[in-house]
Design a protein around this nucleic acid. Sequence first.
DNA 1: GGCCGTAGCTTACCATCAGTAGGTTACTTG
DNA 2: CAAGTAACCTACTGATGGTAAGCTACGGCC
Lengths: 199, 199
Amino acid sequence: MPRADRERQMMSVAEQVFAERGYVAASMDEIADRVGVSKPMLYEYFGSKEGLLVACIRQARAELLRVTSNAALAAPTPEDKLRAGLIAYFEFIRAHGQAWALLRTEAAVVGPSAAGEIEAGRQQQTDLISSTMALYAPTPSTLDMAPAAEVIVGGCERLALWCDQHPETTAEQAAELVMRLIWFGMRTQVDDQPSPGRG
Amino acid sequence: MPRADRERQMMSVAEQVFAERGYVAASMDEIADRVGVSKPMLYEYFGSKEGLLVACIRQARAELLRVTSNAALAAPTPEDKLRAGLIAYFEFIRAHGQAWALLRTEAAVVGPSAAGEIEAGRQQQTDLISSTMALYAPTPSTLDMAPAAEVIVGGCERLALWCDQHPETTAEQAAELVMRLIWFGMRTQVDDQPSPGRG
DNA sequence: GGCCGTAGCTTACCATCAGTAGGTTACTTG
DNA sequence: CAAGTAACCTACTGATGGTAAGCTACGGCC
């Protein structure tokens, strides 16, 4: 089997095993067995257990970024862009389910390189979000976009996990919740500067 | 040395080693060495490496919950409660620095029990937040409190990591950002039901 | 005083698993 | 057919999570 195909197959199996057992409990021997290949092949292609995890993460995040930015690009207004991106995000997470959740949360345990990979993925998401927001709000001085985007990304990750345990929630509902909470909050902030003492 | 003291000492050393090396790379032998005790003592008191991590997490989250709920209790209005809780949160995270970040993110890798511990901690935070919010907004039908609290908790965790890399940001600024983004967003939503088409 | 249960602690060991050395097969290229 | 190389293997090492069995010292009890 050619290397590229084998690598894809390995990453697919690895994603599954990591999700089933967790990174620590997953053994390279088992992954190799399930692939139907011997362990040194994994090391030949990915260098280390962490390298294999990084490859899985990188693939997942590339896919996620592709899906969300395509959705955002296709939408007309900034608000629609953000909403469409959010819906695509929650749909992707739901489709990839547990595997994604594990990959996402487990990288930190491993070391700088996997953690860096995760952070790079989040960075792309936050960049996408903050540039989208910047389209709408031309006065970023009031509310710095970067940390706001961090809040959005973190909030969405958390909400996605919550949705996993509440399967009746649709991606649209989750996206709408985030829009209501954050977008209108931000809009109010940027546009209207309401006095906080209202309540 | 009596057991309780020894346990505290072990947890203190473990938290540090986990933070320095990461959970995977941290070895029980090294922790035992630094404590000045032999490895079986760690297993006698904590059962397993994961058990030791869980103990560290449990202690940290108890401390965090204590700090934040005390701050919230001491504040008069719901808005002040939320703000005070947020400030206490960001101050706590900053003070515990890297150790906290690692403990928080590394549990998922380990297995159900440590992951459950983390989730339990988040659950307490979200409960605290949603009950605080419920004080303010008597119409939870419009915006379900539970998922909204998830978004807040996730956003704060993410923002805390961001603050770690931007040390010039104060806990007050971080809290204010969250308040602006979410509280006023929620308030607008609950109170005014603005039409989304404004932009 | 002398015995005994137990808390705190140790050495020495096992099993598992990440990672490696070196060799084999088979296909392509000249 | 020879040479090179890509895909793949068996068999090993070292580190580390976890355990078995025993040692020491102290407090209670006769």
